[in-house]
């Protein structure tokens, strides 16, 4: 058994060099550790090096950018929850960040760690996908920027290669002009992972006609799912009645959940529909 070494580079370049093998090659990123910690404790992971990112200045911070936000990967969820600029531009994101785990977990967990953990029932992926967020992945060989929905591959799996770091998340400026609502349905306990989580972001014209819509569902498939069929059903009409029901039916048809302690696949499918309807109704009522 190894006692891991904890290394804390101070620049992104140094961090990437360590990750790419220059520093030993067995480094695992420690980005809060609320997901990785229990794996270490149970002996399911035993890396030689834990690569702490908290001293890499480039990876921190929340900044307004182009009317939207630039969120550093090492921003703690609790800071995201309490950030005035996040609350002002995309309140749904601040609100969702405040619902992850508990205060002690939010004080440790980081945005980058949360996304790289890639549990399909997490709260922030649906909200960020609905907001149209993009992630920036950097390695020594270069940088790529992806829409968040393309970042996730499957349960606990992402496109991130071993020598790559998720450095920041961009929330585009146009999302701040949309209305975004996230609902998490966690009937056993508010501290539980949601049975389903539904986020919808829409832009409505002054007559209430939907100009643009993004629909994302968590907990109901191998990754967060963006449901374009539902989006298409919404665009071009007023958010009401049959249109809402149609969009919710599209969600029900598109999700791909499985049975677990938070519900059977069948139930989750039905709940994805119910909560999509409720989220859409809330958006309609806000007009």
């Amino acid at each position: 058994m190894k006692t891991p070494e904890y290394v804390t580079p101070t620049t992104l370049r140094e961090a990437l060099e360590l990750l790419s093998g220059a520093g030993g090659g067995e480094a695992v990123v420690w980005a809060g550790g609320t997901g990785l910690g229990p794996l270490l404790r149970r002996g399911l992971a035993s890396p030689a090096v834990l690569l702490g990112l908290e001293k890499v200045g480039e990876l921190g911070g929340v900044q307004p950018a182009d009317g939207g936000l630039r969120l550093g990967a090492t921003v703690r969820l609790r800071d995201l929850q309490r950030s005035p600029v996040v609350a002002a531009r995309v309140p749904a994101l601040a609100d969702a960040a405040g619902r992850v785990g508990n205060v002690r977990v939010r004080s440790l967990a980081t945005l980058g760690g949360h996304l790289c953990h890639a549990d399909p029932a997490q709260d922030l992926p649906p909200v960020l996908v609905a907001l149209g967020a993009r992630v920036c992945l950097v390695s020594l060989r270069g940088t790529r920027v992806l829409p968040l929905e393309e970042f996730f591959v499957g349960p606990l799996q992402t496109v991130l290669s071993p020598e790559e770091l998720l450095t920041e998340v961009w929330v585009p400026g146009e999302s701040a002009s949309r209305n975004t609502v996230y609902a998490r349905f966690a009937p056993r306990s508010p501290e539980d992972y949601p049975t389903v989580g539904v986020a919808v972001s829409v832009r409505l014209d002054p007559d209430g006609v939907c100009q643009e819509a993004r629909v994302a569902v968590g907990g109901a498939g191998p990754t967060v799912l963006r449901i374009t069929a539902a989006e298409q059903a919404l665009v071009g009409g007023v958010l009401a009645g049959q249109r809402i029901r149609d969009a919710a039916r599209e969600v029900e048809a598109a999700v791909d959940p499985w049975d677990d302690s938070r519900g059977s696949a069948e139930y989750k499918r039905a709940m994805a529909r119910v909560w999509t309807e409720r989220v859409l109704q809330k958006l309609a009522d806000e007009v």
Binding site: T3, P4, E5, Y6, W30, G33, T34, G37, P38, L40, R41, L50, G52, R78, V103, R104, V105, S107, L108
Partner: peptide, 18 residues
């Protein structure tokens, strides 16, 4: 629960080396 660098955290989640 302990206090670490200004916040309450779960000490079962923090490796001693960290």
């Amino acid at each position: 629960t302990v206090w670490m660098d200004g916040q309450v955290v779960s000490s079962c989640l923090v490796p001693a080396v960290v």
